[in-house]
Amino acid sequence: MEDMLLYSSLSLLLLLAIAFKFLLQTRTKHKHHPPSPPSLPILGHLHLIKKPLHRTLYHFSQKYGNIFSLRFGSQLVVIVSSPSAVEECFTKNDIILANRPRFLVTKHVAYNHTTMATASYGDHWRNLRRISALEIFSTNRLNMFLGIRKNEVKHLLRKLSRNSCQGFAKVELKSMFSELTFNIIMRMVAGKRYYGEDVKDEEEARQFREIMKEISGSAGPSNPQEFVPLLRWIDRRRWEKRLMKLANRADAFLQGLIDEKRSMEEKGNTMIDHLLSLQKSQPEYYTDQIIKGLIQVCVGHFSLLLLLLLIFVVGNRC
């Protein structure tokens, strides 16, 4: 009983100390931030966030203006809804706003914040951007994979036609588009399909699907521990340890793809083949870790680019 009272008292003191520090920071350090609604200690504005999110943000913009701030726990978020201000953010002030927030998931899964999508602005990020622009996402490289995109769209259309061959039928397109995206990207990256038909290695495909599902479920905004560090202490770092295990599995999977291509002496025409050929002449710029980070970017952060390409393909009646 005495131990319970002691731990309860210590926990209460810790909460009070954190709340006092939060209020002090809000009144001094952050006094020049854009206007924001009243916030709570520790939680910030998390209690005000309701679904659908875009309507909540629209409601705030009507009250606080086109530029306002929210605090998601310990993370400051600035919302910009003015087209002219957004343009200024991506032109005049693009370097100032180029850094990324440091989440636990990007620390462990994204090689300690060193992939192009998670690294802070600097020499390393500029090098990754150069490699991506020239060797992966250039018009010439993407045109080389036009046949893959057309073929996967045809796969989808055939599947849809089979579902509706007896008349009109309801279909769930979200999962179909997700599988389409992953199949296109992984055929471009490694020459393999992991969803639907023509999957050559079912066990490897199962591992890939599980890893992608876990990474998606662990993304920064989906876990409150990313915004309220106190919850990590309460959880005793169990969630972070799961992230570390996930990172090890993802790294081993990607390394397996690289080793497989290396053993075949880069005879294929995939992105990994191309990057490994560059690794021979410039090993300091194309290390295995950089290649794995580039694969992560291809898989997890360029869906919008792929969507635009798909619109182009469908528009050309593939």
Rank of each mutant, 00 (worst) to 15 (best):
S161R: 12
S164D: 05
V105E: 00
C89S: 14
S82G: 11
K107Y: 06
G167N: 11
N112P: 04
R130V: 01
S138D: 07
Q75T: 15
Y111R: 02
T118Y: 00
L146H: 14
A119G: 04
V171L: 06
E179H: 13
S69H: 03
K170R: 07
R149L: 05
L97N: 11
S81F: 04
F90A: 06
K107S: 07
K170P: 08
N127E: 15
Q166V: 04
Y111I: 01
L180V: 09
I67W: 09
T118S: 15
F72I: 02
R126S: 06
E152A: 10
P101A: 01
F145R: 10
H155R: 13
S175K: 12
L70W: 05
V86N: 04
K150R: 15
E152L: 07
S132V: 00
L156N: 09
G122K: 03
Q166F: 10
G147N: 15
L128D: 00
Y111G: 01
N112W: 09
S74W: 08
Y121S: 00
S175A: 10
F68N: 00
L156V: 14
V153D: 03
V80C: 14
E172N: 12
R141T: 13
R129Y: 02
F68M: 05
K92F: 04
L173V: 15
Q166L: 12
N66C: 07
F72H: 02
K174P: 02
I96T: 14
M144V: 08
H113V: 01
S82Y: 10
S178R: 10
F137M: 13
V153M: 15
G122L: 02
H155E: 11
S175Y: 06
S84V: 10
S138W: 02
S178I: 08
C89Q: 04
P101N: 01
L70T: 06
N140I: 11
R71Y: 13
K107L: 06
E172I: 08
F137H: 06
K107T: 07
V153R: 08
C89H: 04
C165S: 13
F90L: 14
S84M: 10
S61Q: 15
L157F: 13
L76P: 02
S120M: 06
R130D: 01
L180E: 03
D94A: 15
H108R: 02
V77L: 12
Q75C: 05
A110T: 03
L70S: 05
K63R: 15
S74E: 14
F103P: 09
E87P: 01
K154C: 11
I136T: 01
L173C: 12
E135S: 09
N93E: 06
V153C: 15
N140Y: 09
T115V: 09
V78D: 03
S81R: 14
Q75W: 02
Y121L: 00
L146Y: 12
S61W: 05
R102F: 06
N99Y: 02
R102V: 05
L128V: 00
E152G: 10
S164G: 07
R126V: 03
L146C: 13
R149Y: 03
N140L: 12
I131T: 02
S161Q: 14
R141E: 13
N163R: 11
N163K: 14
S164W: 05
A110F: 15
Y64N: 07
N163D: 07
S178K: 09
S61V: 07
K150S: 13
